[in-house]
């Protein structure tokens, strides 16, 4: 943890956001190897993130997402992404432009993150500000602890950026 603390990015200014501007951060994962990354990342981010308008949730399968993304102003999904980038990088996506290029690494029930968000959108349940932070892994058996440790500073930076963005536009969009 000392290493992580030394690399901590200074948190963004805590804007006075009201409850309608709460940002729900949902970590998707399972107990299987690198698929633990989404859960582990959220648990670690919760302990080091200074911004208090985040609402933290863990989710076992993307199939649960449509019910979890309701009644919030913005949502950030954190999930492992299998691709050819070095492990521990963060791919930041915003709905709906580029999701179809990044399928989830472990989609159960045939419903990955993209499909779940598409379902929520079809049901008019998806917040207008929806983001996905994909933590890259190189294989499914990879150690999630190592991956998340590498990705943590960039994840925190992305959350701060999203929070700043929501704060800057929120008073005009409520």
């Amino acid at each position: 943890m000392t290493d992580i603390a030394n690399r901590m990015i200074k948190p963004a200014t805590d804007h006075a956001l009201n409850s309608q501007q709460r940002i729900r951060v949902i970590g998707i994962g399972s107990h299987h190897g690198a698929d633990l990354s989404g859960w582990l990342a959220c648990e670690r981010l919760q302990t080091i993130t200074m911004i208090n308008q985040f609402d933290w949730q863990l989710c076992r399968t993307p199939a649960q997402l449509p019910q979890l993304v309701t009644n919030c102003h913005a949502v950030v999904i954190v999930d492992a992404v299998l691709n050819n980038q070095p492990a521990g990088q963060v791919i930041s996506l915003s709905w709906p432009v580029t999701f179809d290029r990044y399928p989830s690494v472990c989609s159960s029930h045939g419903i990955g993150v993209f499909e779940a968000l598409q379902l929520a959108s079809t049901l008019d349940q998806l917040p207008s500000h929806t983001y996905v932070l994909g933590i890259t892994i190189s294989n499914r058996q990879q150690d999630a602890t190592v991956v998340v440790t590498e990705a943590l500073p960039q994840l925190q930076q992305e959350l701060n950026r999203i929070a700043d963005h929501i704060a800057s536009i929120g008073c005009h969009n409520l």
Partner: peptide, 25 residues
Amino acid sequence: DNIIEMASKHASVVRRGLRLQALGN
């Protein structure tokens, strides 16, 4: 083929399912 296609034609049914699932959770 999937729930998304079904939701486009049976939105109220799918919403009911999600409501019940959330209540169970």
